[in-house]
Each structure stands twice: as C-alpha cells, then as structure tokens.
Design a protein around this nucleic acid. Structure first.
Length: 436
RNA sequence: GCGGCCAUAGCUCAGUCGGUUAGAGCACCAGAUUGUGGAUCUGGGGGUCGCGGGUUCGAAUCCCGUUGGCCGCCCCA
C-alpha cells in the first residue's frame, strides 16, 4: 500500500481520465473560439486580499491560503472572476471592444467533498466586458448552450434558468421595501425552492413577520416562469420595472431568433446568492434535477471598479467540469477513447531492427503514428500485439524481407498482405492512409 | 465544521462461530510459440486485510481511536 496518498479532494488523471478531460476541454475551447472569444490564462496563486476585497473576510475559511516565504498572504485561486477583472481592468482602455475572453483553468476550494464537488476542479469561464446592454447576455447564454450541445446534450438533458436581480430590486422597491429588507427577501427567495416557507425565517427574525399581502406578491413573483407572466405582473407598475422589461424582451427575442428558447426558462426563483451580481443572472441544470448546477453566471457591473479598475460593465459565466462530466457519463455521451497507432512494426532480428528503425523514425517525422516492440519478442506475440494496439496496418521486417530489400505490409483489418520495395514504402503508406 | 454508511490484490468481490500459510474472477507479466491475431493451457508477480491501540492462547473477523472514501447538512464565489 502506498505510503503517500493524494490529498483529500484532489484528483489524479491517469491516461484514460485525461483523455476524457481533454475531450471536454477541446470542445469547450473550440466552441468559445467559434463564438469569437479569446483565450487567456493567469496565475494559480494570488494575493489573499484579492478575494477578501471581493467577497469579504469570511471567504478565507474556504480558501487554500497560506503565508509565503516573503511574508505575503496568498491563496490558490477559488474562481477566475477577480483575476480576469484585474487583467481587463489594467488594460481596459487599450483593449478593442467588445472584450470577449475565455479560459479553462483549475481552481481550489477548501471544502468538504461531495458528488460533483471536490477541492480542486476545472472551470470554463467566459466573460464579456464593456457591454452594458443585454446583447452581452444573449451572446453568453448562446455560448453556454452551445458549450453543452457540442457534446450531444439536448433540451431534454438540460435547461438554463434566467432571472434578474435588477427586476427584483425594482419590484420590491415598488412594494415599498428598503434596501436592507430587499436583501433579506432575496436571501429568502434564493432558499425558497429548498426550504419553502421556512426560507423567510431569517427575514422574520430581522424585521418581524412579512405582511401577508406583501408576501403573497413576493411568492407570486418568484414563481413567474414566462415573459408573458412577467409582463402581466409588471404592467401596472410603470417606471423602472417597465423599462427593464424592454431588456427582457431584447434578451428573449434574441434567443428566440437563435432558436434557443427551448433551452431557456424564465425563472425569477433564481437569484444566485447575494454576491456581486447586478442584473441578469442564469444557471444551467440537468432536467432530471439529480445533479448540482452545471453552470452559473450573470452580470457584475461594479466589480471591475471595486477591484481597482475603471468602471466597466461585465457579464460572465462558468461551467464546472465535475458535474458536467457526470452528466455526460449518465447520458452515455462520454466517448471511450482508444489510443491506437497508425502503424505497428513487426521486427525480426537485430539486423532487421536497424532497417526498421530508419523507417520508423522517418514515418514518425512525417506525422505518422508508429509503434514497435521495444524488446525483441517472438513473431507470434508481435502479431498479437499489433492487433491489440489497434493499428491499421503492420509493417513486417523479417530477415527474409530485409534480405530481399522489401517490406511486407499487412492490413490488420482484412488480413491481406503484400510486399513493397523498401524505397516505395513511404509512398505506399501515405496512399494507404489517404484512401482509408 | 456536523451526522450516517463504508475500507480485504491494480479493479470487482468471497472469507463460516474468533482458529492452520488470506482466496477467486478480471487485469498485468512470462512460457507453450524466431514467421502471422483479441483464443487456449501452464506458470508468475503482486497483501502490514487502510493505519494505531485494546480484548484474547489466537483477530481480516470483536472493541476504541485515527486516516481516507461515499452520501447528506452547512456552504457553494
């Protein structure tokens, strides 16, 4: 038994695991590039202050943080948002608009492990900076949907719930609540789905029981599941809520034109904690409701400035790799990756090996994937290994062939064989794969 | 941070009432097999029974602790 084990919550990627992860990353990356997003990366280790500034002191309990040898308080990054805000903020005036960036990176959180949650995980992050209007939301929700559809997932498998913290503020203001009460109500809304009426406990303790008529209106609002219902509820309010409806029509209209409304549900029950979001917020879930959130995001117009940059509106989202991979596996959409060479060389004695080596090196240099047995082994075993390897053809360098100046090519699928002159090998192999 | 369940070979698991040297299948390696296939047969490597302590003549088995895992709570940027 190994003396040293992996730290709790950390993952090791054996070749098959890494093949799956690479597959996920590859499609995410390709999708983001197709949408015109540019990839960036940044340090894994950041000043602890960066996260305290954004989320407050209590965040430290969930960080991998320590003091480095220079006496600096540092933390492994638990998320990308503060980092990307700093990057963009530092060069905001020099960057061509719109700023559409993405990254695929590893993050660390000191938390208890659970299904779909570990202490290290990967996230795909995509953000748009400098775009105050709902056009940015359309673009990002479309990207989010495509990042999942690229794997064969459909509207049967997942959906995106779209909500709006601005609208909540406007609506609750119109109902006569002050800022502190609004935040308490939003806290209750966030928990309502899970705890039902108990969700309002916190509010009651702080401000006393909520007026029944008021509560009824709040409950009705959080259960809104369509743009039409939203319009109806806000019809008589006028002012800010009515103005905000125009943004909603733009977002839903844009998504409809893209044919994406089947993936998107209006759902005012989502408010995404109380963090830094300032407008539209959205989360993606599996339809069966068995897993944790697949992705989450929203608008955070104040954060770049709060972290020392210029005032710069922003929208972004992140997809985590753990829950997402679970969903792919559940739906049978995670391919099994076979790592097969193009060519397997079957080699006789030492002299034959020297001849084979020259060809192997040349074929590999030309981009062909070539395998051969490192040690001298019996022919029968080599043919078995050739078949096991999954190679398309075997090149046979027996003593007879080498003496005749030929190489025997065996098609490992139909088991046909023919000899070619050593000088023609390159062309023949090339043509074989060109035709294959 | 709290609670429930679990831990025997790389993997899946068996192991009787506490009783001899802890087993099987799969996987891996080798041989049969210096010239033709995913087969078969034979053999091999691999274990501090998670770790530490206790009870006992004797512990994989019972007790306590601990570490790790799974699930749930808190949290989820």
């Amino acid at each position: 038994m190994a003396t040293f084990q992996t730290l709790p919550g950390f993952r090791e990627f054996y070749p098959e695991d890494l093949a799956r992860r690479n597959h996920v990353f590859r499609l995410w990356r390709q999708t983001a590039v197709n949408f015109g997003f540019a990839e960036y990366d940044a340090p894994v280790l950041e000043p602890l202050e960066l996260y305290k500034a954004k989320s407050g002191e209590e965040i430290e309990a969930q960080l991998f943080s320590f003091t480095d040898k220079g006496g600096r308080d540092v933390a492994l990054r638990p998320e990308m948002t503060p980092t990307v805000c700093r990057l963009v903020g530092a060069k905001a005036n020099a960057l061509k608009r719109p700023i559409k960036w993405f990254s695929i990176a590893e993050f660390y959180r000191y938390e208890r492990m659970q299904k779909g949650r570990g202490r290290c995980f990967n996230q795909f992050n995509a953000d748009i900076f400098g775009e105050p209007g709902p056009e940015a939301e359309i673009e990002l929700i479309a990207l989010l949907v495509q990042c999942l559809c690229a794997f064969g997932l459909t509207e049967q498998d997942f959906y995106v719930r779209l909500s709006d913290r601005n609208l909540w503020f406007y609506y609750l203001e119109a109902l006569g609540l002050d800022d502190a009460r609004i935040r308490a109500v939003l806290g209750a809304v966030d928990r309502y789905e899970k705890y039902g009426d108990d969700a309002f406990k916190g509010y009651t303790e702080q401000f006393g029981a909520l007026d029944p008529a008021l509560k009824e209106k709040i409950l009705a609002f959080l259960q809104i599941k369509s743009l039409a219902a939203l319009e109806q509820t806000l019809a008589n309010l006028g002012g800010k809520p009515a103005e905000r409806l125009a943004d909603w029509r733009k977002v839903m209209g844009g998504l409809e034109a893209m044919g994406l409304t089947r993936f998107v549900t209006v759902d005012l029950g989502v408010v995404r904690g109380l963090a830094y979001y300032t407008g539209f917020v959205f989360e993606a879930f599996d339809r069966k409701g068995e897993l944790r959130a697949l992705a989450g995001g929203g608008r955070y117009d104040d954060l770049v400035q709060k972290l020392g940059g210029p005032a710069l509106p922003a929208v972004g989202f992140a997809i985590g790799d753990m829950t997402f991979s679970l969903l792919l596996e559940q739906r049978g959409l995670m391919p099994t990756f076979v790592s097969a060479p193009d060519v397997y060389c079957v080699i006789g004695g030492e002299a034959a090996r020297r001849t084979a080596f020259a060809d192997i090196q040349a074929l590999r240099a030309s981009g062909r994937r070539v395998e051969y047995p490192l040690k001298e082994v019996a022919f029968g075993k080599q043919f078995k290994q050739a078949a096991d390897s999954g190679a398309r053809i075997a090149l046979i360098y027996g003593d007879d062939e080498v003496a005749k100046g030929v190489v025997k090519i065996r098609d490992l699928r139909d088991r046909s064989e023919h000899e070619v002159r050593a000088g023609d090998l390159f062309t023949v192999v090339r043509d074989f794969f060109a035709a294959d």
